[in-house]
Nucleic acid binder design. Structure first.
Lengths: 229, 229
DNA sequence: TCAAGAATTAATCAATCGTTTGAACCAGTC
DNA sequence: GACTGGTTCAAACGATTGATTAATTCTTGA
């Protein structure tokens, strides 16, 4: 009379999801096969339909799995109260700095060179694929996940540049976010160009660069520690 | 006794290639089928093997076709002579502006002379897919295409910020290039966020933003038309 | 006009795709 | 031990994949 999922089945589900993340990230949705994923998870391919009602369902669960465990630092920031009072502007600058740091730390939380966590890179690669060519069934899922981060960033920008239109502010946000994500997605090339397989050796230095570049690009007077010349 | 290709066959080849660009851009390499491509080109699917010796060959030819006729603006710039003389700094700023405009126009393939070219957008979407997840057989082709553009950008940055180390300059280049490529790679999400499937409606406005943001971020005094406040 | 080669076609190939099936397995409950 | 419901499995399903075949059409130089 028991209708509860078994511990063992939860294990199988998780193995399938993690194998799916790895395989989907490597080959894309169409390139990855059910049998290949199941083999990787040491499970039977029929279980994909049984547990997730098909390949598409497994893909969505893989995305949810990523969202549930990643991007936790930025998520914390997004719960901050509204910016108000005389200190609003100063707070906004600090909050923007925190946002960049948190986002970078989330992005790098799982280094692709780190053998401990191959899931990290795969998850980011899958996210990148999904952002570039959102699937019809998953774009809503992606949007609701990203929305709070966008809102948090935009809230800061709005305080810092109240003179700009919403479209211009979105452009600013896009430039800032773009630097960070591109940095993560092109780490391999960057390491080759610099002939330094360990780049970045000091993440703080990169965070400082992105912070300075973004604040200057944003056009905030107090953030111009004039370039040395 | 004639062993020359027919005019008609060249036509068929071109129709297949262009249909391939459209379809590969929409669905990716694995998602697109040769029957679908052939149907779009109003040709027989067996001709894919006959003319290109297979699907992979058609894909490579599609990439070559793009390289041969698109992305020419940045390629032209990359042939410019070295920056010298008293005007070097002014020239470098202009050259950087031209680089951003040319790169953006190449990315979006919005040719004022050739408006509404569905092939252009598809071609760049295909490139974006390829840059994010390079296929083993085509990554070399892609690299040799991109390298000159990177070199050209770095040359400008070196003149504009001679006080910076090479590593810092690479960071600057990464920030600038990152904005542009991320913009292209995340068009899908950007359109969702803005609830505007036609974004960007005015490419010049986006180019202006990226130029301003980059020059300010770069920390060039003469590029600070102080933000209105 | 006619043979030769290039180009195109419909039909078919083996392989693989995601999914379905039906039986087995493995807890627990009576 | 019989029963139940969740879980797993090997086998097979129909559909579709890229590739191939052999016959046909088209083009062209002799």
């Amino acid at each position: 009379m028991n209708a509860q999922p078994t511990d063992a089945s939860i294990d199988t589900r998780q193995r399938l999801i993690e194998a799916a993340i790895l395989t989907f990230a490597e080959k894309g949705f169409d390139g990855a096969g059910i049998r290949e994923i199941a083999l990787r998870a040491k499970a039977n391919s029929a279980l994909v339909t049984y547990h997730f009602s098909g390949k598409e369902g497994l893909y969505l669960e893989a995305l949810r799995y990523i969202f549930a465990r990643k991007a936790c630092r930025v998520a914390e920031l997004a719960t901050a109260p509204a910016l108000e009072g005389p200190e609003a502007r100063k707070d906004a600058i600090q909050r923007l700095k925190d946002h960049i740091r948190a986002f970078m730390q989330d992005l790098m939380a799982c280094d692709p060179l780190d053998p401990q966590d191959p899931l990290g890179e795969a998850a980011m690669a899958l996210m990148a694929r999904e952002m570039q060519a959102p699937r019809a069934t998953s774009s809503a899922l992606l949007m609701e996940q990203i929305r709070p981060h966008v809102d948090h960033l935009m809230q800061c920008l709005q305080v810092l540049r109240p003179d700009l239109s919403w479209g211009d502010l979105l452009n600013m946000g896009m430039s800032i976010q773009g630097q960070l994500l591109y940095f993560r997605n092109s780490l391999g090339i960057a390491r080759l160009i610099r002939s330094n397989p360990n780049y970045p050796e000091d993440l703080e230095e990169v965070i400082r660069h992105f912070t300075d570049f973004s604040l200057r690009g944003l056009g905030i007077p107090e953030a111009f520690p004039q370039p040395r010349n």
